[in-house]
């Protein structure tokens, strides 16, 4: 299979249909979260959905949903300060979920003892609009140098959605996810869109190779601008923290393609696209030469 044809097949295998079990579960959980927030704060906050579905770069192996919960600029219903809003929304959802407190987002996981810590792939992002236009917004930044960040959901969505490089973005996100590179998705997306400016008409393989080469060759972390607040948001700490991982993984990927081809990066398509059947997994188990039993220290 020709490289670009192969990459298209990888993309096709990563599509998540609207009626898929994953999206259905996500939607039903999302409705539950919204109900919980509404019960506590009524109709005061604006609740909207962001994340990869809205941006158009959703993939099967990374289908997070951002649920933004922004309070009006002149309301203290969610709390007086941004930190209070963050904490109050956290307390509101933590009765139902285990809440993993990220820098600005609240990641929801199961607190049911049977499903403890299973990830719902939902981030709740509390914040407050900067004015009555309900566009720009301030969000709290826990344990960051600046405790607030100005952002704009629509600007982010449109920046990615209209980037013209969504296919490359999906593949690069898949690459990043599978290598567990700890860099915020939106920062990574901004880097990719920026690096592919002027490369929109290139083939997928060329786009990917271009991004990896730039990441490998740049001795300094690439500077990235937040379109929602170009002069005000300094994203460099995020890039800096992940730079050696990102750059090293890009270098390893290019070497791997050169030595073993593209299938070494994204796997064999026909073999990754089918859901693992119980029978095939049982056959794999039956072929194990040195079986061992799992254990758990928790009695």
């Amino acid at each position: 299979m020709e490289t670009n044809e192969y990459l298209r097949a990888v993309l096709a295998a990563q599509q998540l249909k609207d009626d898929s079990a994953e999206l259905k579960e996500l939607q039903s959980e999302r409705a539950k979260v919204e109900e919980i927030i509404r019960k506590k704060f009524g109709s005061v906050p604006t609740i909207r959905y962001g994340g990869s579905k809205a941006k158009g770069d959703l993939i099967k192996e990374s289908y997070d949903l951002d649920l933004i919960c922004y309070f009006p600029f002149d309301s203290n219903a969610g709390g007086e300060t941004l930190e209070n809003i963050y904490r109050n929304v956290r307390d509101c959802v933590s009765a139902t979920y285990y809440v993993d407190e990220k820098t600005s987002a609240l990641r929801l996981k199961s607190n049911d003892l049977k499903e403890y810590m299973r990830d719902f792939h939902i981030d709740v992002i509390p914040g407050r609009f900067t004015d009555d236009k309900k566009g720009d917004c301030f969000i709290y930044q826990k344990s960051a140098e600046k405790c607030r960040l100005k952002t704009n959901l629509d600007v982010h969505i449109s920046h990615i959605k209209n980037s013209g490089v969504l296919d490359a973005l999906c593949l690069l996100k898949l690459w990043k996810i599978r290598r567990v590179i700890k860099l915020k998705n939106f920062v990574f997306e901004l880097i990719v869109v920026d690096l592919l400016r002027g490369k929109k008409s290139s083939s997928l393989a060329d786009q990917l190779t271009h991004v990896w080469t730039k990441l490998k060759d740049s001795s300094e972390p690439i500077a990235v601008e937040d379109p929602a607040n170009p002069a005000g948001n300094d994203l460099s700490p995020y890039v800096k923290a992940a730079w050696s991982e990102l750059s090293g993984a890009a270098a390893a990927t290019l070497t791997s393609i050169e030595n073993s081809g593209w299938e070494n990066i994204f796997g064999t398509v026909s073999k990754t696209s089918t859901a693992p059947s119980i029978e095939r997994m049982q056959r794999a188990a039956a072929a194990v030469i040195s079986p061992n039993k799992p254990w758990c220290p928790n009695a």
Partner: peptide, 30 residues
């Protein structure tokens, strides 16, 4: 070895099947 065996087990248990190689009891008993 153990990592692959563990995840084969997880994939089966997730689909309602038993641990393919059995399992140790929890805690000291195991």
């Amino acid at each position: 070895g153990p990592v692959r065996n563990f995840f084969i087990g997880q994939s089966l248990v997730e689909r309602g099947k038993p641990w393919p190689f059995g399992e140790r009891d929890h805690g000291f008993k195991g």
